[in-house]
Design a protein around this nucleic acid. Structure first.
Length: 776
RNA sequence: GGACUCAUAGCUCAGUUGGUUAGAGCGUUACAUUGACAUUGUAAAGGUCGCAGGUUCGAGUCCUGCUGAGUCCACCA
């Protein structure tokens, strides 16, 4: 027992000192064995969500770490064998885009100034630097993860497993190369999956366009008016649809109608999807350039196999006209000729009227580009067979989601999930393990049909993915003449496998899978969490984690959504400098609950800085009053109140009723603490800890012990007998220690440094969380 | 249009099988304090728990409707 130094708690130097100690040996290693030699009480595993390796973690990431770390520390303290493994994500699309924006743009260069290999190596080095920086921040926040095992998603060990999964799923028929509608991001020049799209409202024009019926009697009045916001896609129309219950039009179903300007004949079909009271109740069906139209086509063709409608592409990947468009538009940028097109429609009497409307458009989450739906040849993963297992996982609580009310979104998403576009036309990521025996070419013919051709023996022939002379899926090249697919895999294809990729890399899979908890932001529920569940089911018919704890959005210092432009952000450096990491960590928990957003404000940070100071000072008081106490060796072996009382009795000390009362109280409090922890109710837990420590322990109990611990000011003698005083010393020490342990998962730094002084007595052998003091 | 969430003290939020007098932090007011701590203590003020119904012996809590705020999804071709 050392007397704590006078004055306020110095969070800065204490945190530095404790950090140095924590990382002086591999204390957080999965292989670390506590010195007490008590057998582990089961294992507990958490895989940290890998942050993107191109930027320092923001306050939201850090709050997630606070949760993960509190859980990990707690589980070590109750004797679990803890594996907490951090990682870093290469972030395919975003990683490439960020590198181009932050580095190449500033040098005035483009990625095409470099070879694919050169570019890859440059981004690799860029991210390698950030990986170190990020790891330092993770350590600084107190994360007790196994940093020796910090794993990068492009680590060669990982890459091989990811590619093997691709091959396995391909061989099982779950991954296929197909020509289908995708979300095309014209800025990134890549396909974007549904879960990386967002929506935006904008003003748009609704054009009412006259389509003439293909009638033998050439009646000039025989036409339909079709309202559309996308007149530029009329050449890609392959049908016109009306609602079958719409008496105005249903007699026309089966007849033909002519596309303005080109006079191409297309059928009038029916679809329940057509909204009768929007526009004129007639919809032009453009399956190549509108998701819903694609669905309408699929449905119609399924139900009317003899009257199938076509799909026709008229806009290519460069946003230029192609296929069956009037020749003077061919090859021109669609948006630069749109005025010309409208004029031409006008002159030919096809425009009935134009209205201003508000329109929701789909944009790319990352580039904010307006998504251009189009038909192209891409790789897809068939997700249909996973829908039921995914729903079952959460329904049966095989994956227990905290909070449950987020599940509405989950079910919504699963229900509408369609095949996942997994290939990206980028360089930064896992290149597909797919080989072609010759050059591959995707073209759009004059009819607007997407054709994939392969060059074999200097002849372009139709590409057939099922023909092993055309394509092979394997890691190594089948031979010198074979060419590897240029595309890479979607980042989520690897991060979706992250829990088992990490564990398998380190040979921990058998003992640690499924993992116990995943902590993720609630916004990742359908982006990432669901993907992990999907892969876990595909590979192992098991869940990836038993509990899913969703954290809310962290708001800025003014309670508003955090953004740099608003100036309401707070940096880790500022926290370290002015408040201490412990204060920040407590902000994340206090009165918060799963899934709820909360603000990190200066008021809160100050409050918890004061609280940490209070912990320090109360501990100091105890240390000062136990100067002449010499029973620590025996006392430190006791972890429950009844044994403690027996110890006091054996020593023939006399337990004052107040001491007795508070010992019973702390015993009950600890019970409740464990219950709340098991239920992930950290908000209430930390509130009660704060209340109990400050207002019960400090304000009431410590004040009362002054009657038994301090000397009389006048006489200079103790106010009570030695027997009573020793019992009080024993009790107050034990009680303080209980609080220090209960607080440790949330404020690890201040508790660790106090513990080293009052319990460990400067031996500094191992972190306090490995000593068993909880009565559980 | 559909789903979900929120509405509790001046502010930010807790309040999980419905059960005494509804809590915390910050803020406010008054007083105290040279010996753990002014990053302190003691005490006080402050709420018809959004509105209107309903179920119940009993509702902040359950149900219905309404109002306002937000998120997600769908869609407005």
């Amino acid at each position: 027992m050392k007397i704590l130094p006078k004055g306020q708690y110095d969070y800065q130097s204490s945190e530095e000192q404790i950090l140095t100690f924590w990382h002086s040996k591999n204390f957080f290693s999965t292989e670390y064995k506590p010195k007490n030699n008590i057998p582990f009480n089961g294992s507990w595993t958490l895989i940290c969500p890998p942050p993107n390796a191109y930027d320092r973690p923001h306050i939201g990431n850090l709050s997630g770490y606070a949760y993960m770390d509190a859980m990990a520390r707690y589980n070590r303290m109750i004797g679990k064998h803890v594996a907490m493994i951090p990682g870093k994500d290469h972030a395919g699309l975003e990683g490439e885009a960020t590198y181009i924006k932050d580095v190449l743009d500033k040098q005035g260069k483009s990625k095409f100034d470099f070879s694919r290999d050169e570019f890859y190596r440059m981004v690799w080095e860029h991210q390698a630097k950030f990986q170190k920086i990020i790891q330092e921040d993770e350590k600084r926040i107190g994360l007790s993860a196994d940093f020796e095992k910090d794993l990068y998603t492009l680590d060669p060990r990982v890459v091989n497993m990811v590619l093997e999964t691709f091959i396995e799923l391909y061989n099982r028929g779950l991954i296929y190369k197909g020509v289908r509608i995708v979300n095309w991001d014209p800025i990134a020049k890549s396909t974007i999956p549904d879960n990386q799209c967002a929506r935006k409202t904008r003003q748009a024009r609704l054009y009412y366009i006259k389509y003439y019926l293909d009638d033998s009697n050439q009646d000039i009045n025989n036409f339909l008016i079709i309202a559309t916001t996308r007149p530029e896609t009329i050449f890609a129309d392959t049908a016109v649809a009306v609602n079958p219950d719409d008496d105005r039009y249903n007699h026309l179903i089966g007849k033909f109608i002519k596309i303005p300007l080109t006079n191409k004949k297309i059928p009038i079909i029916s679809s329940k999807r057509v909204v009768r009271d929007f526009g004129t109740g007639v919809l032009k069906v453009t399956p190549a350039h509108a998701n819903e139209d694609w669905e309408i086509m699929i449905e119609w063709n399924r139900e009317n196999p003899d009257k199938k409608i076509d799909v026709v592409n008229v806009i290519d990947k460069e946003s230029c006209y192609c296929g069956c468009v009037p020749s003077h538009y061919k090859g021109k940028n669609v948006y630069s000729v749109i005025d010309e097109l409208i004029n031409e429609l006008h002159e030919n009497g096809h425009i009935e009227k134009i209205e201003e409307v508000e329109q929701n458009v789909v944009i790319s989450d990352r580039t904010k580009a307006i998504i251009e739906p189009m038909i192209t040849s891409q790789w897809f993963m068939d997700v249909s067979e996973f829908k039921d297992p995914l729903r079952e996982m959460v329904r049966t609580k095989a994956v227990d989601v905290h909070p449950q009310n987020m599940l509405g979104r989950f079910y919504d998403w699963v229900n509408k999930m369609r095949d996942w576009a997994i290939s990206r036309n980028l360089w930064w990521g896992y290149r597909l393990p797919v080989w072609y025996s010759g050059e591959l070419k995707e073209t759009i013919d004059d009819d607007g049909h997407v054709k994939v051709l392969i060059n074999i023996n200097n002849q372009w022939v139709d590409f057939d993915p099922k023909n092993s002379d055309h394509m092979r899926v394997q890691i190594d090249s089948p031979g010198d003449s074979w060419k590897q697919d240029d595309d890479i895999l979607d980042t989520w294809f690897s991060s979706g496998q992250w829990p088992y990729l990490t564990l398998r890399t380190y040979g921990l899979f058998d003992a640690n899978y499924p993992t116990d908890v995943l902590v993720s932001g609630s916004d990742l529920l359908v982006k990432w969490d669901l993907t992990m569940m999907l892969f876990s089911w595909a590979k192992y018919r098991d869940v990836p984690f038993r509990n899913l704890y969703l954290t809310g959005l962290v708001k800025g210092t003014d309670g508003q959504k955090m953004s740099k432009s608003r100036g309401n952000t707070i940096s880790l450096d500022e926290i370290i400098q002015n408040y201490g990491v412990d204060s920040f960590r407590l902000c994340c928990f206090y009165q918060n609950k799963a899934g709820r957003s909360y603000a990190i404000t200066y008021d809160k940070l100050t409050t918890f800085r004061n609280f940490n100071n209070k912990i320090w000072n109360a501990s100091k008081f105890v240390s000062m009053n136990l100067e002449d106490y010499s029973y620590f060796d025996e006392l430190n072996r006791i972890n429950n109140v009844s044994e403690l009382k027996k110890f006091i009795l054996d020593k023939r000390w006399i337990l004052d009723s107040k001491d007795n009362e508070f010992l019973d109280y702390i015993d009950q409090f600890e019970n409740r603490y464990h219950k709340l922890f098991a239920k992930y109710r950290f908000g209430i837990l930390t509130e009660e800890l704060y209340q109990s420590f400050w207002h019960e322990f400090c304000d009431k109990y410590i004040e009362d012990t002054k009657n038994r611990l301090l000397k009389d000011k006048n006489t200079g003698d103790y106010k009570v007998s030695e027997e009573i005083r020793r019992a009080t010393q024993t009790a107050i020490y034990f009680i303080l220690k209980k609080y220090i342990y209960m607080l440790h998962p949330f404020v690890p730094f201040v508790t660790e440094i106090i513990w080293q002084n009052i319990v460990e007595d400067s031996k500094f052998e191992e972190p306090m969380m490995y000593t068993r003091f909880f009565n559980i």
